[in-house]
Design a protein around this nucleic acid. Structure first.
Lengths: 194, 194
DNA sequence: GGGTTTGTTGAATGATCATTCAAGTATATA
DNA sequence: TATATACTTGAATGATCATTCAACAAACCC
């Protein structure tokens, strides 16, 4: 009976993620989204409910894709290798519209206004941190990293360095790959006792 | 002949810096500024020209005060000691309205929209980086840090770690002081060859 | 103390914001 | 092919945005 929607919802979310990621929450207007997604207001609100709801969808999607990318790196490089490769991948992947982490951008833009999207970003950061921790634990079990410091603490430090790297990369006037390699080198130099 | 202004311009800039720093550029409305500064639109525009012009003033002020704080730490702790103390100070200073660096917040919010304030933030970051580099060079001359890596590269890494630390601190659910101490410890552990 | 100059006030401006909704359109079933 | 059921369209909404400006008030010089 009904008419079928003419758009690919998944593709629209991906496109919206790109727009939000690049221009930020306040920096993205409904007109930007209408133009970028090719959707008129009625269709937009029927499909996604609100600008905020779509933003949240893109945040979730962002983390899912980050996890998937990390999973792939684990399969090809192992736990420690994946962590090191991830550092490079976030600053060299040309498919990414922006260098800085979308979670960081969301947190910094909205935490001062008590926006619930900032809380969501915090949650996702904790999730990523836990994933890193499990990889550090795995690397410790494999003997690639000593057990002198807990996997959780290492993960926290790793994520902090990662976010710093990505803010630095956003500047555009420094060699982010070199910086990524330095951080990666510290994972070996600083953590491995033979 | 003229009537004298009834407000302390310096104090207003300081207050505006607090507001902008906390709520961000788009998150701060003229109504927020009018309320926060106690200024009606006419006076505001007579005094500062525009919201953007005031934001730029506060950015400049922010960096000046950061440099002054760093200078003071150098006098009491020396070059390397100041760098380590600075890490702690940015996350423990309760006078600061926000944990994250205002330059990072500005860069992440506005670089995707080609706003000139983002360029200004980049400039200031480069200035801070140069200051860090001169402190690392001084520490090297004093024998506190080995010369196996250039002061400029160390500075770039230090600033990256610093920004990561401050983004992490913005989350509020982690022990930022512990993280600061870990980064500070690496300055010794990783860089000193006896 | 009058006149001039400057600060202050707050209403008005036009733009843009996210969102709503009624009218129109296309499709799938019957 | 008729009808029901969604999707699509775009004008309208009311709020809020940064900014302007004309009227008013105060302070300093002569």
């Amino acid at each position: 009976m009904p008419r079928t929607a003419s758009f690919d919802r998944n593709a629209l979310i991906a496109k919206a993620r790109e727009i939000f990621w690049q221009k930020g929450w306040a920096g993205t207007s409904m007109k930007d989204l209408e133009r970028g997604l090719g959707l008129h207001p009625g269709s937009f609100y029927a499909a996604f409910g609100s600008k905020d709801a779509l933003y949240e969808l893109t945040l979730d999607r962002y983390v899912e894709e980050g996890q998937a990318r990390l999973d792939q790196l684990v399969q090809t490089h192992g736990a420690l290798g994946a962590l090191k490769a991830y550092l490079r991948s976030v600053v060299e992947d040309s498919a990414m519209p922006v260098r800085a982490c979308m979670l960081s951008k969301t947190l910094l833009e909205l935490s001062g206004q008590d926006n619930q999207l900032a809380s969501r970003a915090k949650q996702h950061m904790a999730t990523m941190e836990a994933r890193f921790a499990s990889l550090f634990a795995q690397a410790q079990d494999e003997g690639d990293i000593d057990k002198g410091m807990s996997a959780e603490k290492r993960a926290r430090r790793f994520q902090s360095d990662l976010m710093g790297l990505r803010v630095s990369a956003e500047r555009g006037d420094i060699d982010a790959l070199e910086l990524a390699d330095e951080i990666a080198a510290d994972l070996d130099r600083n953590h491995f006792k033979s």
